[in-house]
């Protein structure tokens, strides 16, 4: 182990790790919120709702995340003038669109959110369709309204079914977030590339690999605990 190298670049790598966590956390939160209406539209019987959702999911699942990132980051640059002239009024304050699309950081978060929303919607769809029909019929027989059935029966059931697949999606998002480094963001991957360009020490990439590995491994373990917790009926019987 080269402690000198770690001492010099370790703090930078940890700073990068924080940026990675920030980007992934924000993207998952925004993407998760977008995924719920998207999944409902995708499973809707109304073609006008279903088709746009299908097209959205087909596009984001069928093209590389790198291409999507470039499309939004460089594409926004092309429309800089229009974006500078537009601002969105949020009641308390207004945000200029260029303040968002002009920054690589927000472009990455927007792209990753839109991307993960498409995958999460498909995972949720699997969950929604996996809820036993009898449960919904029973809820209807009890006189629950459609909204109440959705909130009390369908979504809670769907989340449990979708949980393992969503764990995989989180891991994929963590790994995919390394792409942010390509558009000048100093996330863990970006800091690693910078450190390598200064030190020309190959070991820096190995350190980054260890950090990413520990991160994904921790998430995997934590997720297994969460699955156990939300599915008490699946827990192994306690030892006598």
């Amino acid at each position: 182990m080269d402690f000198d190298l770690l001492q010099r670049y370790g703090p930078a790598l940890l700073r990068g790790l924080l940026v990675t966590l920030e980007i992934v956390g924000l993207s998952l939160a925004i993407g998760g919120l977008l995924a719920i209406p998207l999944a409902l539209a995708r499973t809707s019987a109304v073609p006008l709702l279903r088709w746009p959702a299908l097209a959205y999911i087909f596009f984001f699942r069928g093209t590389p995340l790198l291409a999507q990132t470039f499309l939004i980051y460089y594409g926004a640059g092309q429309f800089a003038q229009e974006l500078r002239a537009t601002s969105v009024d949020l009641g308390l304050f207004s945000v200029g669109l260029w303040d968002i699309f002009g920054q690589a950081y927000w472009c990455a978060i927007i792209t990753f959110s839109l991307n993960t929303a498409a995958y999460t919607a498909e995972i949720l769809r699997g969950g929604i369709q996996g809820v036993a029909g009898g449960e919904i019929e029973a809820a209807r027989a009890l006189g629950m309204s459609r909204g109440l059935i959705l909130r009390r029966v369908v979504l809670p059931g769907a989340y449990r079914i979708a949980l393992p697949a969503y764990g995989n999606e989180i891991i994929l998002m963590v790994k995919g977030s390394a792409i942010a480094s390509v558009i000048t963001i100093y996330d863990l991957m970006g800091e690693t590339k910078l450190a390598f360009s200064r030190s020309f020490d190959f070991a820096i990439y190995l350190y980054a690999a260890v950090i990413y590995f520990l991160l994904t491994w921790t998430i995997t373990l934590a997720w297994a605990r969460l699955e156990d917790w939300t599915n008490p009926q699946r827990r192994p019987p306690p030892d006598k």
């Binding site: 390394a178 480094s181 990413y212």
Partner: peptide
């Protein structure tokens, strides 16, 4: 399988690219 699946594809590419060079 555990190591490769636990690190970003982009990083794997860099590891191979520079690793092969070294």
């Amino acid at each position: 399988t555990t190591t490769i699946r636990g690190i970003p594809e982009l990083l794997t590419l860099f590891l191979i690219y520079y690793g092969l060079q070294y």
